[in-house]
């Protein structure tokens, strides 16, 4: 007793005071939650996905609740990288939390353009690359569903940045480890997974899809077992640090991901239901360590007994 428990983790050179980050698209640009949350408690905020120019997003309806989950088809609505740097980042810099810029593009060039803008910007501690976007120039295939495309886009981005580069994987693939290896070979510093699972819902009265975009991304506790399995598979296949994402609602969920091999986690949909959920998860992890004689959270990473 009395021992200080270390919750800090290091992901690709980003020192985090605890392993709990908030996931892109679920926490806006941080300021949306300031009335409800002390941002200083959260180790890192992964901001809403940014593109080189602002995006309008998809027409509504954009969300639908499902059993223990939700589908969304926001369509990557965002203010664009320049507005983020000029209007949102100065505010975020006031807090003792790391800022990770999630970004995407329609082409390899667009990905690279975003990275060139942020690379020398003070206050951005890392990049998270969303590769679940279609490649407009080459047959609309999603970058993250093809190992060759993944390798090419990650290699190209790598050349333009020295910032820690996290690649966020799509779960909508046959074998996620092949994509993870392609990202690792291309120079990624860390892997985060999973993005949302592709899904659909239909109104039986009107026989119309419940989302205007017809299909959307499933998130929430219903996807956690799938996410956990994929984190475990990827952790065995690549030597990079892993960030586990997918339906984390409680500290027990977060610990499962870490035991499976994740060095850190991101809390997503749970923020919508309880903006203070990250704080509760951090405290829960700390109590678990205390009760189980663990003085350093890193000792639990990948400790699954098979």
């Amino acid at each position: 007793m009395g021992d200080v428990i270390s919750l800090s983790v290091n992901i690709a050179g980003i020192n985090l005071k605890n392993p709990v980050m908030v996931a892109s698209g679920t926490f806006g640009y941080g300021e949306e939650y300031v009335p409800y949350v002390d941002l200083n408690i959260i180790s890192a905020i992964v901001v809403k996905g940014l593109s080189i120019t602002p995006r309008e997003g998809n027409p509504p309806p954009r969300i639908v609740e499902t059993s223990a989950g939700m589908l969304n088809s926001i369509g990557l609505q965002n203010i664009g990288i320049d507005s983020f740097i000029n209007e949102k980042l100065p505010f975020l810099k006031k807090y003792n939390t790391k800022v990770i810029a999630n970004f995407f593009g329609d082409s390899i060039d667009e990905y690279c353009e975003v990275v060139k803008r942020v690379d020398s910007v003070d206050g951005i501690h890392g990049l998270e690359m969303n590769i679940s976007c279609p490649n407009k120039q080459e047959g609309w295939l999603e970058f993250g569903t093809n190992p060759d495309l993944t390798f090419r886009v990650v290699s190209a981005v790598r050349k333009h940045t020295k910032l820690p580069l996290i690649v966020k994987l799509s779960p909508n693939v046959t074998d996620v480890t092949i994509i993870a290896k392609a990202a690792a070979d291309a120079g990624a510093d860390a892997i985060s997974l999973i993005n949302t699972l592709s899904g659909m819902a239909i109104d039986i009265k009107t026989r119309k899809p419940k989302l205007a975009n017809i299909v959307g991304g499933l998130s929430g506790p219903s996807i956690k077992p799938v996410a956990l399995r994929m984190v475990w598979q990827v952790a065995k296949s690549v030597k990079l640090p892993i960030i586990g994402i997918g339906g984390i609602m409680t500290y027990e969920d977060a610990l499962e991901f870490m035991i499976a091999g994740a060095s850190a986690v991101q809390v997503g949909t749970a923020n919508f239901i309880d903006p203070n959920v990250s704080e509760k998860i951090i405290h829960g992890i700390e109590s678990y360590c205390e009760q189980n004689g663990i003085n350093d959270i890193n000792k639990i990473v990948g400790s699954v007994i098979i």
Partner: peptide, 10 residues
């Protein structure tokens, strides 16, 4: 979903 302007769903 969120009520706070974060999810952009509404």
């Amino acid at each position: 979903a969120c009520g706070t302007g974060a999810c952009l769903g509404c």
